[in-house]
Computed example of a mutant assay.
Amino acid sequence: MYPELLRATSAERYAVKYEEAYQYNSHLTTEGTQDTRQLSVDADASDSLTEAIGDGFLVGIDGELSVMQGEMIEDNPVVGVYYLTPHVGLRGDIPEPTLYDVEQLRSVTVKNRQTIYCDETADNQ
């Protein structure tokens, strides 16, 4: 559920949970087969990259998606960048598989932007 009171910690918690569900469902939809035996996503927010911007926050999420196909276990990096405000939430991908070298989220190029939250008052802002 989108945070009613948006603070850095609530934005980070929301983005982590959303990213885990997003990556899990995305993998099942695009690459999951009857041989998929186990699938898990472990994501985390880098609090050093959470940036206050306007009335919201930029949040960087990275982690790992582990999948067992047959007898083979494969670990894949996952990365998402979020812009969360009280009225609108956006998620995007970056070309790099990690946020390791990123110093500011404002400096990254975001692709595949998706609206993940929009309340009824957003049109009146």
Rank of each mutant, 00 (worst) to 15 (best):
C118V: 14
T33E: 04
D101E: 09
M72W: 11
I94T: 15
I53V: 05
L105M: 09
E120P: 03
G70P: 05
K111I: 06
T50E: 05
A43E: 06
I61L: 09
Q34E: 05
R37E: 13
P3S: 10
I94W: 06
S10A: 03
T29F: 09
D44L: 12
D119H: 14
P97Q: 02
T50N: 00
Y100M: 12
E31A: 10
N25M: 09
R7Y: 13
I73A: 08
I116S: 02
L6T: 04
A8K: 14
V67I: 15
D35W: 00
H87F: 02
E12S: 15
K17A: 13
Y100S: 15
K17S: 14
E96V: 08
P3D: 10
T85L: 11
T85A: 11
V102C: 03
T115H: 00
I61S: 14
I116N: 08
V81Q: 03
Q114R: 15
L99W: 06
L84C: 03
S107M: 12
K17N: 11
T85G: 11
D47Q: 12
R37C: 00
A45S: 13
D93G: 00
Y83W: 04
A43R: 11
M1Y: 02
T98E: 07
S40V: 02
D42V: 15
Y18C: 01
Y2C: 02
V110N: 02
G54H: 09
D119R: 15
G80D: 08
I61R: 09
L90W: 03
E64C: 10
L5D: 04
T85Q: 09
R37A: 09
P97S: 09
E51A: 10
G92R: 00
P77M: 07
I53Y: 05
L58R: 12
Q23W: 07
A11I: 06
